[in-house]
Design a protein around this nucleic acid. Structure first.
Length: 284
RNA sequence: GGCUCGGUAGCUCAGUUGGUAGAGCAGCGGAUUGAAAAUCCGCGUGUCGUUGGUUCAAAUCCGACCCGAGCCA
């Protein structure tokens, strides 16, 4: 009986050097790299999303990079559905999956399992998005006062999601969440992984260098030829900025600086997320 | 050389009849189980160019000087 796959996780903020670290690690231990980055799942945006280069991919097998068409939707649950069979397949061959990525929520779906909450419904979301926040808050308070008291009511995404769970799940979101949180706390998964750390100033220097390399290395052409991105890809850092560069509302230095700032802010959010994942071994 | 305008947070700037200063962006901290490279919450980080003076009190009024831009020579 094959043991369940026990992947090795390589996490950290963007531009910390995860890809290179994962390749080195996989080479050393006989592993294969599996992507856990939301945007790098997409095809045709290798430069924009700083996906591993062909030379790097040739060193060791890589999985789940560039597997989705640009307009194909994903979310954390779908990612888990894609990743689990790949992890099992790799482990079945006696190799070690090295999961690398910075999408904290996607990684957590892998490490802690999917909740039994109802899936997102694009049509319902469109309807909720069109309404003022105050109205959504009032609806949530009526549907589920417990959840309304727990979440940040200024965050319309979270308010809308809570309403979505109540409406689609047929029960208050707070009840559904509590049931799952209790179960997942008992599960206590065995997890192994590293968290790549770098001094903030060094990380910022690396981000600036990478942004320049992206803009000089084909990201602009990628964006120019990108058809209808999915909601996930549409929000990739750099996409909007490069579009503004292309239509002339932003000049090159401003475009570069905006991408840098957005990337720095993203890196900080990632550090906040991973900081509390105590099972990750710090590698600095 | 003369005149004019400007010098306030890392950047761009606001600051009303004098009462030791505040916005945006950047930055820092945090939340976050089906949009997460998303979304959201909290925090002002300052020799008000320098130096004298007037005043109970000066970013604010007066003088001198320094720096920048422009105009006239």
């Amino acid at each position: 009986m094959a043991a369940p796959p026990t992947p090795l996780f390589v996490c950290g903020p963007t531009a910390a050097g995860k890809s290179a670290h994962a390749v080195a690690l996989a080479t050393r231990i006989g592993g294969e790299v599996v992507n856990a980055d939301a945007c790098q799942l997409y095809r045709g945006v290798d430069v924009l999303t700083a996906a591993p280069a062909a030379a790097e991919r040739a060193l060791v097998p890589h999985h789940l990079f560039g597997i989705l068409a640009p307009d194909e939707p994903v979310d954390a649950f779908r990612f888990r559905q894609l990743a689990v069979p790949v992890l099992e397949e790799i482990a079945g061959r006696g190799r070690v999956p090295v999961v690398v990525g910075g999408s904290g929520l996607y990684l957590k779906f892998l490490t802690h399992g999917p909740s039994p909450l109802p899936a997102g419904d694009p049509q319902l979301r469109r309807g909720l998005d069109a309404r003022p926040l105050a109205e959504l808050v009032a609806e949530l308070r009526a549907l589920d006062p417990v959840e309304a008291a727990r979440i940040n009511l200024a965050n319309r995404r979270h308010v809308a999601r809570a309403i979505e769970i109540c409406r689609l799940g047929g029960r208050p979101a707070s009840q559904l969440r509590d049931a799952w949180l209790g179960a997942s706390a008992r599960a206590e998964p065995r997890l192994r992984g590293v968290l790549l750390c770098r001094p903030r100033a060094e990380l910022h220097r690396r981000i600036a260098a990478r942004t320049r390399a992206m803009l000089d290395g084909g990201a602009i052409a990628e964006v120019a030829h990108l058809p209808h991105p999915s909601p996930t890809l549409a929000r990739a850092i750099g996409l909007r900025e490069i579009r503004q560069l292309l239509d002339g509302t932003l000049d090159r230095p401003a475009c570069e600086e905006r991408i840098n700032a957005a990337t720095r802010q993203y890196a900080k959010r990632q550090e906040t997320w991973f900081r509390r994942e105590q099972w990750l071994e710090r590698v600095c």
